[in-house]
Computed example of a mutant assay.
Amino acid sequence: MIRHITLGRTDWQRSRRIQEAIVSGQISLGGNRPLKIYGLLSCNSGKRMKMENRVFFRDQQEALSAGYRPCGHCMRDAYRLWKQGRCEDD
């Protein structure tokens, strides 16, 4: 997991490092740290969150192992599966 605010001092530095990490495959998903939700980088819900709450993941396995759940907007199928599994555990 990579926190957005640790990627540089300025917006330009952070933006540049995020692009490099996406191209190199270090980042493929974004998440909201307080809510413990992850989703696609293109998700409108994720684009609206505060920078200090944003984290990045390499893949779904990394996000799930960190205790995050799929976004119900951009990852509907994964969210349904997560919710079914969670309801079965209760």
Rank of each mutant, 00 (worst) to 15 (best):
H73T: 02
H73S: 11
G25F: 07
H73F: 08
R69V: 03
I27P: 09
C74Y: 09
R76Y: 13
G39P: 10
M75T: 00
L41H: 07
A66R: 05
R69T: 03
D77G: 08
S28A: 10
F56G: 00
N44L: 04
I27G: 03
R58V: 03
G30K: 01
I37V: 15
F56R: 01
G72N: 11
G67I: 01
Y38N: 02
M75A: 09
L41D: 10
P70R: 00
D59Y: 01
I37H: 02
G72C: 03
Y68L: 11
L64M: 09
Y38L: 03
D77E: 12
P34G: 12
V55S: 04
L81S: 09
D77R: 11
G39S: 08
R76Q: 13
G72R: 04
A63I: 01
G25V: 02
G39V: 00
P70S: 07
V55I: 14
C43A: 05
Y38K: 03
S42G: 08
R69N: 05
D77M: 05
R54S: 07
C43N: 08
G46R: 00
R69H: 15
I37E: 08
Y68G: 07
A63F: 02
N53C: 00
R76N: 10
L29V: 06
G30H: 03
I27H: 06
D77A: 06
V55G: 01
A63Y: 04
M51N: 15
K50P: 14
L64S: 12
G39A: 02
Q26A: 10
R58F: 07
K36P: 11
L29N: 06
R58I: 10
R58S: 09
I27Y: 09
Q60Y: 02
R58N: 11
R33K: 15
Y68N: 09
L29D: 07
G72L: 05
K47G: 09
L29H: 08
G30S: 13
N44I: 01
N32W: 15
M49P: 05
G25P: 13
G67P: 12
S42W: 10
L35A: 14
M75K: 06
N32V: 06
L40S: 12
M51Y: 12
Q60H: 12
L41G: 05
D59T: 00
Y68M: 06
R76G: 09
M51H: 14
I27S: 03
Q26T: 03
S65A: 12
Y79N: 09
R33N: 15
S28K: 01
P70W: 04
R33W: 14
K47V: 01
G25W: 09
K50F: 11
I37F: 04
Y79I: 00
K36Q: 15
G25I: 05
R58E: 15
F56K: 01
Q60S: 08
Q60P: 13
Q60A: 05
R33V: 01
S28G: 08
E62D: 10
R33F: 12
Y79G: 00
E52I: 00
A63G: 04
G46Y: 04
E62M: 11
C43R: 06
I27M: 07
A63E: 10
C71V: 09
R48A: 11
F57A: 00
G72E: 06
H73R: 08
C43P: 13
R69M: 11
S45E: 14
V55A: 06
N44W: 09
P70D: 06
R80Y: 15
P34D: 13
P70E: 09
D59Q: 02
C74L: 08
R33Y: 12
A66Y: 13
S28V: 00
R54Q: 11
E62F: 02
P34K: 10
